[in-house]
Design a protein around this nucleic acid. Structure first.
Lengths: 300, 300
DNA sequence: CAGGATATACTCAAAATGAGTATAATAAGG
DNA sequence: CCTTATTATACTCATTTTGAGTATATCCTG
């Protein structure tokens, strides 16, 4: 049995939430995701990745999950006649800076995919996107019906309702419609900040995975400090989901799941009544399974 | 930037449901999952896989989804000094044989992981597993509490309730406790049919993914013929989940989601009142998102 | 035509969810 | 020290969704 030779590369979507904004670690002034070779010295893929994250950043990575493996021919850079296989990972990091100070290398998710942040209502950029997509829909006379349904569904248009989980589908639709610069555009209008090669697609994959995951696994806590208030927890979830939640119902949800316990302390920097501090009950990880923890939305 | 060299291999968990039993395509008389090299001629990972599935089997694969990429050092076979990266996929295939005739190469899921089938109640083998695991729990005096909680949770013991999604966790626990032959056992009791290398772990990964997926995406239909009765649909879901469902509620769930439509025909081979035939409404794929479609369980 | 078998319809209590209103505890300003 | 703004926390209530049945319909077999 012949086995093909390839170059193996590890690539990371490292995410933190700083000052209520989700951020991703980048290199080359925000142009690329950090990546490194998978070497013979590495015991496993995950430990290899951890090793050079430790080298390149000061951030201890708690949660690390494999995302996807890419090896399309267009990614082939032809070194030594082989091709490159990129194995991507999603990592969650505790926030390092205060809400004011921005650390170098970190950039907001929504710089790259600005249409994904609906916390302050439907972002205005969606009107421009809608207009550009309408042109794309009409460009194909035979399949325009299909295209229209897909646009409506993915972008929540014409009464379809916004679905925060469809991050990747939306990016791929924009790519197909050549509305992101990575698609090799011809000078026409494009949306969001560009990244190197297919790194923005990988970012979208990570965002989609995380938005889906917070609904059934208690991974948010990897992004929070040891002690936090319920509002902090809520704001972090909101930052990731790009949506606002119903405060009282969010609290009910968290409490009835017994995910957290009071520390006894309070936080009085809130501007109003001091909030109780909580910590994540790690014991819960071995006690229960986490089923459909839907997010309690509010309409705004 | 140095990029490590590796051998790339594609490996498939091809699943069909034949005669109400979930089955997996194997080679070497059921000892291994089919796998093949990822070659330069292949355009993408997925198309490469499709290509040699077409070569090796007569089965048209509809649904194909990437599962996981493995590259642990213990998988290293040291050819040419490199190491092997295995990219695994889950494929769904429409059943090919009548409930009676068994096609070569196909083996039942539950030959390999017999503790996973709870359709006829809790399988007896779980008593033996419980006994062996109890010994493992007691073997570590310092961490026995942790071990006990993990066993209870993963295997639904001591009132914890069986969770069908934990297929991989259960396999990995048995591996750790050296109760599967792949762990390099010392002649003691082991459970389920062994596979080559880590193929049984990959099978478990595929089973877990599919059991989780049928709850929120309409993928079951890839396993059914064009027209089917609601009972057939239910039996297929039950086969995958390894559980029995509440018939009336299952029907209500399916109908209210508008996943299927009547064909007009009926199936009278059921032994009782003839059942209406349905077909999957493919249009639904572009119409709606599928959220927490929990399965309507029944206790038995 | 009775009896067995399956399909399909309908019921009902309990639990979960969405959307509020009400009340409590703090800080700042006068 | 009292008012007001601000956030935290508690409670309520109608609606929907679940889990678990019972009831009825339509076939086949003997």
């Amino acid at each position: 049995m012949t086995i093909g030779l390839a170059h193996a590369e590890l690539i990371a979507v490292l995410t933190a939430v700083t000052g209520n904004d989700p951020r991703v670690m980048t290199v080359r002034s925000g142009e690329a995701l950090p990546s490194g070779p998978f070497e013979l010295g590495h015991r496993t893929l995950q430990s290899g990745l951890r090793e050079w994250i430790r080298e390149q950043t000061a951030h201890p990575v708690g949660y690390l999950e494999q995302l996807y493996t890419f090896a399309d021919r267009d990614r082939n850079n032809e070194i030594l006649g082989g091709r490159t296989i990129s194995i991507s990972y999603l990592g969650l990091v505790r926030e390092q800076a205060a809400p004011g100070g921005r650390l170098p290398g970190w950039h907001g998710w929504y710089e790259y995919l600005p249409w994904e942040d609906h916390r302050k209502g439907r972002p205005a950029i969606l009107d421009d996107i809608a207009a550009s997509l309408a042109a794309w829909v009409d460009a194909d006379t035979t399949r325009s019906g299909q295209r229209r349904r897909r646009v409506d569904f993915d972008f929540g248009m014409n009464g379809a309702g916004w679905n925060e989980d469809l991050v990747l589908q939306r990016y791929e639709l924009l790519y197909e419609a050549r509305l992101v610069a990575e698609a090799g555009c011809d000078g026409s209008r494009t949306f969001g900040r560009t990244m190197f090669a297919d790194h923005r697609r990988i970012l979208a994959t990570g965002m989609a995975r995380l938005r889906a995951k917070i609904k059934y696994r208690p991974v948010v806590f990897e992004l929070l400090p040891e002690n936090f208030t319920l509002l902090q927890l809520q704001k972090t979830v909101e930052a990731l989901a790009g949506l606002t939640l119903h405060k009282q119902n969010f609290r009910r949800l968290i409490e009835q799941q017994e995910l957290v316990e009071e520390t006894g302390g309070t936080e009085s920097e809130t501007g109003g009544r001091p909030a109780k501090l909580f910590r994540f009950r790690r014991a819960i990880l071995e006690e229960r399974e986490f089923s459909g923890t839907k997010l309690p939305l509010s309409r705004n």
